[in-house]
């Protein structure tokens, strides 16, 4: 049974990383997200900053850190686009908060849970983006839910490859 009590899990599983990892991994995710669409073209169905946000939120199990990480990466993404700054920031802040909140309660070492959680949080992030832009701000633009599903699938596949690599970077006692 993967679902274990929060207090027990929180005591034994808080991942710690060197400071450089907190800086370089999100920066690498931003750079890769900006550069890889030139390679994959229209098939670039992934959101690496969101994946990194979820990873650190799950590993640190701190909603505040998850929120801050999501906000920072989302604002960077917005700043690189031509759209309003804050759309991705809000979506990823909430995604980071939710990931950390869930990570307190469940075993996040299980790959199946990681994949399922990333898939769900990708869709939630898209839904928040749509809600804020269309309903709060009243902006008119088209939305492609099929593309969002493909993106959630792509993120889930990346989790299978990336999370084990990032796990190797954590500090061991």
């Amino acid at each position: 049974m993967s679902f274990i009590g929060a207090s027990f899990r929180r005591d034994i599983e808080i991942h710690r990383y060197p400071l450089l990892v907190y800086i370089l991994v999100p920066l690498a995710a931003l750079v890769a997200q900006a550069w890889l669409p030139r390679v994959f073209g229209q098939y670039a169905y992934f959101d690496l900053p969101l994946v990194v946000t979820i990873y650190f939120a799950l590993g640190r199990r701190s909603p505040i850190q998850g929120t801050l990480m999501g906000a920072a990466l989302g604002l960077f993404e917005d700043a690189l686009s031509h759209l309003a700054i804050g759309l991705n920031g809000i979506a990823k802040s909430i995604a980071g908060y939710l990931a950390a909140s869930v990570g307190v309660r469940i075993d996040v070492e299980n790959h199946t849970i990681r994949v399922a959680l990333t898939f769900l949080l990708s869709l939630v992030s898209g839904a928040i983006y749509l809600f804020v832009s269309r309903f709060l701000l009243g902006l008119e633009f088209q939305w492609n839910w099929l593309g969002e599903i493909f993106k959630a699938i792509g993120n889930s596949v990346i989790v299978l490859l990336l999370f084990p690599l990032l796990d190797r970077l954590q500090l061991r006692d």
Binding site: I64, Y97, L136, L137, G138, E140
Partner: peptide, 27 residues
């Protein structure tokens, strides 16, 4: 913390959006 960050970003978004005479919002 979450509410503070969301509120700050929402205020920032509100500054960037303009309301046209036709009743439509645009960036």
């Amino acid at each position: 913390v979450l509410l503070t960050i969301l509120a700050a970003q929402l205020i920032g978004l509100g500054v960037q959006v303009r309301h046209s005479r036709a009743g439509r919002n645009s960036l």
